[in-house]
Amino acid sequence: MKKIKLRVPATVANLVCGFDILGMAIHEPYDEMEFKLLDTPEIIIKHKDSFDLPEDPSKNVAGIVLLKIQENLQLTNGFEVTIHKHIKPGSGLGSSAASAAGAALGANALLGNILSKDEMVHFAMFGEELASGVRHADNIAPCIYGGITLVKSTTPIDIIPLNAPDLFVTAVHPQVEVKTSDSRQILKKSISLKSAVEQWGNIAGLVAGIQKNDIPLIGRSLNDVIIEPVRSILIPKFDEIKKESLAMGALGGGISGSGPSIFMLSETKETAEKIAVLMKTIYDKINIESYVYVSKINPIGIEVIEENL
């Protein structure tokens, strides 16, 4: 029986100003997914975690991706997938994207790598649609491509891998819930031209800074005048964490995805670890449990850790 086991990383979407178009992979936390190719057509989902996620394939993020692949390719084979989820759903660290992207890549590997990366992104977006109601790829793309990615378009799919600067990421996940669907509903339906122009400048500056490895430009461009002012009110102590992290030497940062996780970029591991202590201390003071991760940008994305093909 063909089998494969994957390590599927968390991702940080938006990168402050790049709503729905920029994302990066980090090393921790990560999920583990084990796949088997079946001779029969059923899709079997097993969860080895405590999140009580549905195992009906049509209601499961990984399951719907496998169903779409099976249907599109007219497969007579099915799949069994066992998911060890460590990226908590609703964390803002790409939990649903990890399941969706992992399903697309795992199925593709078992089928002999017949899909391109863009085709895997296409199928994985069905999982994001199930989770949030929107077919977005800003978490999926860095999961599959690794590093930092720009989603130029999803119709047609046009993913641009960017450089991965040698920077450290500090991410804190306070144990409060912010649903992606809810955080999308509170966004403004229209914005001023002045705000749009400022945001375009920040996005262009950030992409240019990443490509040129211009660290000061990256720092200057990590500014969001459209999404963050609205969403940050859902996240306890966001303003304090951002202000104090910048004072400690962070280049910049903001909300990870739709929150409640917050991320900061730093040039050194020492600064990143000091910011991690700061984040934990702030949440401890208000009795909110939190998990903090310090990581470099993950240039690989999903990793194969065992295979029998």
Rank of each mutant, 00 (worst) to 15 (best):
I288Y: 01
I286K: 09
I297C: 01
M264Q: 14
E267F: 07
I282C: 08
I282F: 00
I275A: 05
V292E: 04
K285T: 11
N298I: 12
D284T: 11
A272H: 06
M264D: 05
E270Y: 06
S290V: 03
T268E: 08
V294A: 12
N287D: 14
A272N: 06
N298A: 13
A276H: 03
V292G: 02
T271W: 05
E289W: 02
E289T: 15
M264W: 02
M279K: 00
N287C: 12
N287F: 13
T268R: 08
P299E: 13
K280R: 11
L278T: 06
V292I: 10
I282Q: 05
M279W: 03
E267M: 07
V292W: 04
M264E: 08
Y283K: 00
D284E: 14
Y283D: 03
A276G: 09
Y293W: 11
N287G: 01
I275L: 07
K269S: 09
K274S: 13
I275T: 03
K274I: 04
E273R: 09
A272Y: 02
L278Y: 06
S290R: 07
T268N: 10
V277E: 13
A272D: 03
L278K: 12
K280Y: 01
E267Q: 14
S266R: 07
K269M: 13
L278P: 07
M264R: 08
I286V: 13
Y283G: 00
P299S: 11
L278D: 01
D284P: 06
I282K: 11
I286H: 04
T271R: 11
I275F: 01
V294H: 13
V277Q: 10
L278R: 10
K269P: 03
E273F: 06
I288V: 04
T268W: 09
L278M: 12
K285Y: 05
I275K: 02
V277W: 04
D284W: 04
L265F: 14
K269F: 03
N298P: 12
A272G: 14
M279Y: 12
E267T: 14
I286F: 03
L265C: 10
I297M: 02
I286R: 05
L278F: 07
I297R: 02
V277K: 11
V277Y: 04
E267L: 08
T281W: 11
Y291Q: 14
L265G: 10
E267Y: 08
L265V: 09
V292C: 10
I275C: 04
I275D: 02
L265W: 08
S266Y: 05
E289Y: 09
T268I: 09
I282H: 07
V292D: 08
K285V: 08
D284Q: 12
A272L: 07
I286E: 08
D284V: 03
I282N: 06
A272V: 04
V277I: 15
D284G: 03
Y293D: 00
E270G: 09
K269W: 01
T268K: 11
N298M: 13
K296V: 09
P299I: 07
S266H: 05
